[in-house]
Simulated scan of single mutants.
Amino acid sequence: MKFLKKLFWFIVILLVFVAAAGYIIYDHYNVEKKELTYDLRKNSNGSYIELSNGVTHYELDGPDTGKVVVLIHGFSVPYYIWNGTYEYLTEHGFRVLRYDQFGRGFSDRPNVTYNKQLYFEQLNELLDKLHLKKPVSLVGVSFGGEVATDFTAAYPDAVNKVVLIDPGYVAEKPKYPSFVLDFYEATHAEQRALGQMTDFKYPTRHPSWVDQYQPQMEYKGFRRALISTLYNYNYNAREANTALNDKHKQVLLIWGKEDNTVPFKYSDSVRSVLKTEFLPVDDAGHLPYIEQDQIVNPALVTFLKK
Rank of each mutant, 00 (worst) to 15 (best):
L4M: 15
F8D: 07
F8T: 13
W9C: 12
I13L: 15
V16I: 12
V16R: 09
A19M: 12
G22K: 09
Y26F: 11
D27R: 14
V31Y: 10
V31L: 13
E32P: 05
L36E: 04
D39A: 13
L40D: 12
N43V: 10
N43L: 12
Y48I: 01
L51D: 01
V55R: 01
Y58D: 00
D64Q: 12
G66M: 02
L71D: 02
I72C: 02
N83D: 15
N83I: 13
Q101P: 05
G103P: 03
G103N: 00
R104P: 03
R104Y: 06
D108C: 03
D108I: 01
V112F: 05
N115T: 07
K116T: 08
K116G: 07
F120H: 06
E125Q: 06
D128H: 00
D128K: 00
K133T: 15
V139A: 04
E146H: 11
D150K: 00
F151M: 03
Y155W: 12
P156L: 03
V162C: 03
V163M: 01
Y169S: 13
V170A: 13
A171F: 15
P174L: 11
P177V: 09
V180K: 10
L181T: 13
A193I: 15
G195L: 04
M197D: 08
R205K: 14
S208V: 07
V210P: 00
I227A: 08
N232M: 03
Y233S: 03
E239A: 11
T242H: 09
L244Y: 06
N245M: 04
N245F: 06
D246L: 10
K247M: 08
G256R: 04
G256K: 03
G256W: 04
G256F: 07
P263C: 09
K265M: 08
D268F: 12
V270Y: 07
P280A: 06
V281R: 02
A284N: 05
A284W: 02
P298Y: 12
L300E: 04
V301P: 02
K306N: 14
